[in-house]
Structure formats: structure tokens, C-alpha cells
């Protein structure tokens, strides 16, 4: 049996990193067919991922905004050819997959970090304070995978692309608008370096020193929930249990205390640097290098000297 992988697409384009990481996980389960709800160009990009043996392109207008109702109905209509339905655990994957699972009367397994066998998976629970191993007894396994836990599949493949003819416009929802931040920085969840700021940064204006250090290092910008709630940074930068999960080579946390919900999103980073003026801040318990100091002195100096 083969695996259906729902590609992550936004604005018609393929999110290559997320899709290629999920392809690595999917390939452990069987030959991979990728479903692209987007453009021909996105399908061609998906066909380029090694580990992908076929690409299905759904170009219909019902799918162009990846609305859950339409895409889930489409997946349901082709599901009998597959043993597993997989998606990266992005906001799109998390929106659609549980709907697919319920349509098929099976459980969804969210945020898989390890494929133990075709029916057994590891996933974090309690904000990553425990790792659960679960075995699915369902006929079709529906799983979302945490992209930071799998290396992206390499490129160079040339899978055949075929069109999906059916069009399922369920008519329950409609897209109005996207407010997507455009940035030249690397994508947060796949960046090699992340510089993150917390409540300690104090204001939206001062948050620019966090971005400036990120730019100096060619990295992405992250934020704690408190920084987002206070309006210092936009919501898509939130790292944590209920935001994005990152595992860069280098994570620099400035003015972040290190609540478990934040650690859940970054503690798998290779090297963690913490800058905090409170020497008892819990972030120091996970930091490889901790500096007890005022971030307004340290960060500008790092920008100058790195």
C-alpha cells in the first residue's frame, strides 16, 4: 500500500522545507504519492523531492485556498488507495487532517516525532514533558508529522505529475483574505539560526534589535507568547507548545524566562544561548551558554562584534 502525503502549500506555492521533511517520515511507511492543492509549479517542485514516487495535482478553484472542507472531501474521495495519509504538522496540516480522519472514522495521530513501525509512532504530550508511543488499530493511519524532527528529503527526483479530475466544492466556507508577512529572512521552522525575544525586550521598537541580530547571523526571528501578546512581534513568530516548533543549530533567547510552554518549542535546538538578567530564570537550565546580563547591552554588542 502507498502513502498519501498532503503537501504544504501557501498562496499556490509549495512550502518545500515542510513538505520535504514530511516526505522523509512518509517514506518510512511506503512509496509516497504527494497531493498538491495548488499550481503546476508547486506540483513540479514536489515532484523534485527524492522519496516521492508520484504527484497528484488538484488545481481546481475549490482548492486554491486550501479550505479544510474541500480538501478533506477530496482526500476522502481518493483515500481507499492508501494505507497512510500524512501531512506536515503545519497550520494547514493541523486544520485538515483531523477532519479527514473523522470522515474516515479513524483517529488522527498528531505531531509525530518518530516512526517506530507502520502502525506505531512517538509523539510529545504535555508540552513535550512526556513522549507517548502509540499504536494505531485503525485501517488507515492518519498522521501529522513534526517537521523539525525529520531531515528534509533531498532534491533531484522526477516523479510523474497527474491531475486530479474531481472537484469537491463543499460550499461551507469561503476565503476572504490572507495577511501574510513577507520577509527575506529564512523560514522560522527550518532556519539554521533563530534569534528570539521575549517580554524582556519591552516594546515593538526595541524588538528591532532582535531582528538586527537575526539578520547579522542570517537567521530567523522568533518570539515568546508574552512578546506576541504584548504586540512586540506578530503571531506567526511565536515559538512553543502552541506556536511553532523549531530545532535550529543555534537558538538565541533574549529576555525570555523559559516557561515550559516556550521550551516545548525550542529545546531540541542544537545549541541554546540564553541572555537574561535574572540568574534564576529557568531558560538557563536548558542553555548551553547562559549570560546573566541586560539584553540591551549584550545584543547590540553581539551585532557589532559577530
Amino acid at each position: 500500500m502507498t502513502v498519501l502525503l498532503l503537501a504544504d502549500v501557501s498562496g499556490g506555492d509549495l512550502s518545500l522545507d515542510a513538505t520535504a521533511s514530511a516526505a522523509t517520515a512518509a517514506a518510512k511507511l511506503g512509496p509516497v504519492t504527494v497531493l498538491v492543492c495548488g499550481t503546476q509549479a508547486a506540483a513540479d517542485d514536489a515532484a523534485n523531492i527524492d522519496d516521492v514516487s508520484a504527484v497528484l495535482l488538484a488545481e481546481g478553484s475549490a482548492y486554491s485556498n486550501v479550505l479544510a472542507e474541500n480538501v478533506a472531501a477530496l482526500i476522502q474521495s481518493i483515500s481507499n488507495q492508501f494505507s497512510h495519509i500524512v501531512a506536515p504538522a503545519t497550520s494547514t496540516g493541523k486544520n485538515i487532517l483531523p477532519r479527514v480522519a473523522a470522515l474516515l472514522d479513524v483517529m488522527v495521530i498528531s505531531d509525530v516525532i518518530e516512526v517506530v513501525s507502520p502502525d506505531t509512532f512517538k509523539r510529545p504530550v504535555y508540552a513535550g514533558n512526556a513522549i507517548q508511543t502509540v499504536k494505531s488499530n485503525d485501517a488507515i493511519k492518519v498522521i501529522s508529522v513534526r517537521t523539525s524532527s525529520f531531515d528534509a528529503a533531498t532534491l533531484g527526483g522526477s516523479a510523474a505529475v497527474s491531475a486530479v479530475e474531481t472537484e469537491s466544492e463543499v460550499g461551507l466556507s469561503a476565503h476572504i483574505e490572507d495577511k501574510v508577512a513577507v520577509s527575506d529572512r529564512p523560514e522560522l521552522t527550518s532556519a539554521k539560526v533563530v534569534v528570539a525575544g521575549g517580554r524582556g525586550v519591552g516594546s515593538e521598537e526595541d524588538f528591532t534589535i532582535i531582528s538586527a541580530l537575526a539578520d547579522k547571523l542570517g537567521g530567523a526571528v522568533g518570539a515568546s507568547r508574552a512578546a506576541v501578546d504584548s504586540g512586540f512581534a506578530p503571531n506567526d513568530l511565536q515559538v512553543g507548545q502552541t506556536g511553532k516548533v523549531v530545532a535550529p543549530d543555534l537558538y538565541i533567547a533574549a529576555g525570555i524566562s523559559g516557561a515550559i510552554q516556550h521550551l516545548a518549542g525550542m529545546k531540541d535546538s542544537k545549541v541554546i544561548v540564553a541572555i537574561n538578567k535574572d540568574e534564576d530564570a529557568p531558560i538557563f537550565q536548558v542553555a548551553d551558554f547562559g549570560l546573566v546580563a541586560d539584553l540591551f547591552e549584550v545584543v547590540p554588542e553581539l551585532i557589532k562584534r559577530l
Binding site: T120, A130, Q132, T133, N137, Q285
Partner: peptide, 17 residues
């Protein structure tokens, strides 16, 4: 789903100041 086990995650060792 059958829960086979629940384990502690790999502990991160605190580094240095």
C-alpha cells in the same frame, strides 16, 4: 490507539554560564 508507553523526554544537560 493503544498507548504502549509514556516516557520522559531526553533530558537536556544545562551548560555553562
Amino acid at each position: 490507539l493503544s498507548v504502549i508507553s509514556i516516557e520522559e523526554p531526553a533530558e537536556r544537560v544545562a551548560g555553562m554560564k
